[in-house]
Design a protein around this nucleic acid. Sequence first.
DNA 1: CAGAAATTTGACCAGTTGGAAAAAACGTTA
DNA 2: TAACGTTTTTTCCAACTGGTCAAATTTCTG
Lengths: 230, 230
Amino acid sequence: MPPIKVKMLETEGGKGGAKAAPSKRPRAQTRIQREKQEVILEAALDVFSREGFRGATIDQIAEAAGMSKPNLLYYFPRKEEIYQRLLAEMLDIWLAPLREIDSVGDPVPELRSYLRRKLEMSRDYPRQSRLFANEMLQGAPRVLEMLETDLKALVDDKAKVIEGWMDAGKIVRTDPYHLIFSIWATTQHYADFDVQVRAVLGKDRGGEGRFEDAARFLENLFLHGLLPKQ
Amino acid sequence: MPPIKVKMLETEGGKGGAKAAPSKRPRAQTRIQREKQEVILEAALDVFSREGFRGATIDQIAEAAGMSKPNLLYYFPRKEEIYQRLLAEMLDIWLAPLREIDSVGDPVPELRSYLRRKLEMSRDYPRQSRLFANEMLQGAPRVLEMLETDLKALVDDKAKVIEGWMDAGKIVRTDPYHLIFSIWATTQHYADFDVQVRAVLGKDRGGEGRFEDAARFLENLFLHGLLPKQ
DNA sequence: CAGAAATTTGACCAGTTGGAAAAAACGTTA
DNA sequence: TAACGTTTTTTCCAACTGGTCAAATTTCTG
């Protein structure tokens, strides 16, 4: 599976390399380069996911990363570059659960585990989720193309799988696209609207129980709905 | 129902009035004041809902409103003030559907119409939804307090209503809070992730049909789930 | 139409922003 | 340890930011 591509501005091969080796062969990355880049990306994820691209400043990121602005710019010469690195990384892990949906499987365990994996993502990578949400709110200027091609193709494919389950009478006939949207919406909500969820549930119900409650609820909702059988 | 309060910075009574009448009685608003303020709020909603508070600039808003920056600042002396006006207005209309859920009603029509009203909101006020989403992503710095008091109280109240339906055996026993979250998530998704929905559905399915499809799907999902009865 | 009040404009300002440049400090290895 | 490449810091800049102010213009009211 090729890594998701995000519209890239020219950056000598996109390697984000320090402007070290000026003309010859670009030498392998040093230990410090790898480490610092990691620290920077971590800090940038924090800031970008909260403030969005425009709202975030290099200074904020540099401070969060514990280094000076010019020092940060030594590793990533442009703000855009950091953002796009994060976006691309993110899209890759974010779509993994959808890719795993299997056509040969039975719908019940298959949907159940998709729900659960998406919910785990929201729990374990909430900043990535918010980064993506921020990009969506801005109209997806940097990923629109890939949404219309790669993502659409992937969803079309999985929609077919779901339709297969309907044809086999294993699940009720309904719109597979809106089903996928609903799963995305309900699971990502716990990352993107985390503050609201916490505020409404109150101090006490904020911990690990929250995750299990949500998982159980969503499983029941998607499989059985609210009305009692018969 | 008192209007939602948002943390306000001091602005001579919060009336957002032009700095006209300096000391005496503050004179009624002129026609021009009403009109221009409306234009400004419209433009600001556009920009803030896309870029978030920090990402938006007064210049952008002024240009979208077709006036100069100092002219805009004549009507709203601070950027914060515009943003908070929009937030407060928004929270009020946004929560109206939830307030309307009635304890005496039957769950089926009651939930159905709540779903539909929330979905209509996403269709008719998508920018307001994105404004709110942006505020959430930033950690709700301006509304956290009201989420923890007003909103929590309202949701607690409606959760009780839903629990009443469960006690009466009219709907399956489940977590009312997560049920409410799910309705918020699924309906608001169509406003907040509009670009993605459009991209995945393709050019053809972008129109008015989309809304009806979503409404029908969600109704079925929430009432019956995916598994065939029996 | 005169005068007052309301509105708009242009010039300006201090602080912030993304980024460039060069020099200084550091680390590695022959 | 000298020489070289790497990393960090200092200094700087032009554009942009939110906001002020006084003067010029327009609108309203008697």
